[in-house]
Amino acid sequence: MTDMTKEELHRGLADAVVNMDEATSARLSEEAVERRYDAFEAIDHGLAKGMETAGRLFEEEEYFVPELLMCADALNAGVDILKPHIKRGKQDIRCKIVIGVISGDTHDIGKNLVKLMLSSSGFEVVDLGRDVPPQSFVDRAVEEGAGIIMISSLMTTTMEGMWEVVRMLEERGLRDRIKVAVGGGPVSQGFADKIGADGYSPNANHAVRLAAELAATLA
């Protein structure tokens, strides 16, 4: 065991994530457990901070999709070790989000990026996968008590389905309780406004800020 203060260890964990280094992330996470450092803090001040940096680098076009995915693997290598040691009640779930790719579309790289950025930022994410019918978004959001539905599409053909989700929420009188955010290649702020969605996000890092804003309006 090296002689690391808690702060140094947190910094090491953050760096391991930014450097896409799964082995170091796992090793330092084990060290945090052995030293009985608070596991939640190690995630929140270490791994998640690293993911935040990775997300920023992605937004600044220093990192691209392969890099961000590898950062996420490094994050998860640490989270898997630390999570069982989190003291109960400590984890502060911000808001439940139902996410998926709208029906007709099986392109889910973007959705997966958004999901991992949200998860690492403390949101509980229910992933419906790809090719998801509008009805399923609404049904699952109700079942799960989710506050936000996030819908992705890469094909203009399928964007209509996003509209359908908004309409269904309106018909069921759920529009005030469940926020809708949209994203994906052909989607724009203009389109989001047009269909009456509550938000649009151009990338995975921005999606976290958007989710936080939307969650705040629900509270």
Binding site: M20, P66, E67, L69, M70, D73, I109, N112
Partner: peptide, 11 residues
């Protein structure tokens, strides 16, 4: 699998 594929472009 595209997510794995993209990572494997690096590793």
């Amino acid at each position: 699998d595209p997510m794995t594929f993209l990572k494997e472009l690096r590793r």
